[in-house]
């Protein structure tokens, strides 16, 4: 399979989980990585600059009309939903919250699933609510590959547990195995 994008969703415990995963992806990681991290209304500038200090990939906030390109990790801006358009560019939405969340993981995953279909990898990590489960299910139904962090090793097991139950993902793996798995899948 020639994958074209990775989408990641996480909430509580997500800062640490992403600090573990993202620095392991080398600069030649072949596809864009697009992340929704629930962080309330706070801005994520300092987290992004912190990650840039430890990642080979360039980490930034996704902007309206910006194309999703390899070599980058994109974060949804606080208080906006992030979507992918048919031309692989980002769009934003200020629509009502979904699962009490904006950005919502479901919104990103569903829009990415319709665009990338089987060329998409969806990842659900630690988190304390059910956002992302429906989205991951759509990723799977449209032929994409799905990974969920093992809830037993997640700081907050609720989000991975919902995703496991609803989406029946292809892989259920411990946090330290997520980056190697992404590298393995995308290098095939």
């Amino acid at each position: 399979m020639n994958y074209q994008a990775v989408v990641i969703g996480t909430s509580f415990g997500g800062l640490d989980a992403l600090r573990t995963i993202l620095p392991q992806l080398g600069e030649s990681f072949p596809v864009p990585v697009i992340v929704v991290l629930h962080i309330g209304d706070r801005n994520i500038d300092s987290f992004i600059s912190h990650l840039n200090g430890s990642c080979s990939l360039t980490v930034k906030e996704a902007e309206m009309n910006e194309p999703a390109r390899p070599g980058f990790v994109y974060f949804a801006p606080p208080n906006y939903h992030l979507l992918i358009e048919n031309n692989f560019c980002f769009s934003l939405s200020a629509d009502e919250k979904l699962n009490f969340s904006r950005p919502s993981i479901d919104v990103l995953f569903e829009s990415a699933a319709w665009v990338y279909k089987q060329a998409l990898i969806g990842v659900i990590l630690t988190g304390a609510n059910s956002d992302g489960a429906d989205g991951l299910k759509v990723v799977k139904q449209l032929g994409g590959t799905t990974l969920v962090q093992n809830p037993c090793t997640a700081l907050a097991p609720v989000m991975p547990r919902f995703a496991l139950t609803l989406a029946r993902p292809d892989f259920r793996i411990n946090l330290e195995r997520v980056a190697p798995k992404l590298i393995e899948l995308t290098s095939q």
């Binding site: 979507l83 048919n86 769009s91 939405s93």
Partner: peptide, 8 residues
């Protein structure tokens, strides 16, 4: 309109 928005 944004296709992703309309689709949703």
């Amino acid at each position: 309109y944004s296709k992703a928005h309309v689709r949703r």
